[in-house]
């Protein structure tokens, strides 16, 4: 047997497929599957959330208030703004529907014009917003709106969706991955957690609650205008925010107030 050297020209050991094409295909299929699962489970969550008993909701909230509490001054004396806001909130709470736990107001010195409802049952109210508002009615609208996120079960829905997302990513990439901590972080920043539809629901909930508590819904529109005006001016963030048409939200609110005759024409403001 004679050894005859021969140059190998074709490599049969490697596939001649385009890695980029494979990447796009696989990622596309995976993303599509995940989105389908997420969408379907999201529908299930929307169905289940309003049917959860207030006892269960209390348990969930207490779970979050233990780990996710925003208030730092639990032992210190509460600020006078905080007490003022808490009093309005308590008054609204007595007439509210669907709110399982009395919201605890946390007042922060932040200059941002915003207020957030947290899963822990706390409503964080920023100083920047309070200074912009002139009347108690305007303040009450904001608080009633945030209460609407509890009453309309938006918080529960968002928590459910977040949990689903965590399940999916944990299943795909393992429990301890960087994506999970990212999602948890994202869920904790409440700013853009609610959809446009949910914001409108909360607005309508708010005017209804205002009417029940005060007999009119004055201040609602000017209050909403103030908070949206600031969102509009805050540069690039607006582009990604869930409030693409602030005008539409105001329009819807005006229509609702007109329709249900919630405005008290005796009071000028």
């Amino acid at each position: 047997m004679k050894f005859s050297p021969k140059k190998i020209t074709e490599n049969v050991n490697i596939s001649r497929t385009s890695p980029l094409k494979e990447f796009v295909c696989l990622l596309g299929i995976l993303t599509f599957t995940v989105m389908c699962v997420y969408f379907l489970l999201g529908i299930a969550i929307d169905f289940v959330a309003p049917r959860i008993s207030s006892e269960t909701e209390k348990k969930i909230i207490s779970l979050y208030s233990a780990i996710d509490s925003q208030s730092t001054n639990s032992k210190e004396e509460r600020k006078k703004e905080e007490i003022f806001l808490q009093n309005i909130s308590d008054r609204l709470f007595t007439k509210s529907r669907g709110v399982a736990v009395k919201p605890k107001i946390v007042f922060t010195e932040k200059e941002t014009v915003n207020a957030f409802a947290y899963p822990s049952g706390e409503i964080v109210f920023c100083k920047g917003l309070l200074t912009k508002l002139n009347t108690e009615n305007e303040v009450a609208f904001i608080l009633a709106h945030e209460m609407g996120h509890y009453g309309e079960k938006h918080i529960l829905k968002q928590l459910g969706r977040g949990t689903i997302l965590l399940f999916i990513t944990s299943g795909l990439f393992g429990v301890d991955n960087s994506l999970n901590s990212l999602i948890v972080n994202f869920l904790n920043t409440t700013e853009r957690r609610f959809s446009q539809k949910q914001e409108q629901e909360a607005d309508l909930y708010a005017i209804e609650l205002l009417f029940k508590s005060y007999g009119h819904a004055n201040g609602a529109i000017s209050s909403l205008e103030k908070i949206l005006e600031d969102k509009k001016s805050s540069n690039i963030k607006h582009f990604f925010s869930t409030h693409p048409h602030p005008g539409k939200r105001i329009q819807k609110l005006k229509q609702a107030i007109k329709k249900h005759k919630l405005e008290n024409t005796d009071i000028n403001f």
């Binding site: 490599n11 050991n13 490697i14 596939s15 497929t17 890695p19 494979e22 990447f23 696989l26 990622l27 299929i29 995976l30 795909l172």
Partner: peptide, 25 residues
């Protein structure tokens, strides 16, 4: 990094892990 990610994606669906083939070769 790219091929590692591609192999990770491949792990979900199964099939030839072509991105590892060149590595082994």
């Amino acid at each position: 990094y790219f091929k590692r990610f591609l192999a990770l994606l491949r792990n979900f669906f199964g099939g030839r892990v072509s991105s590892y083939e060149t590595l082994v070769d």
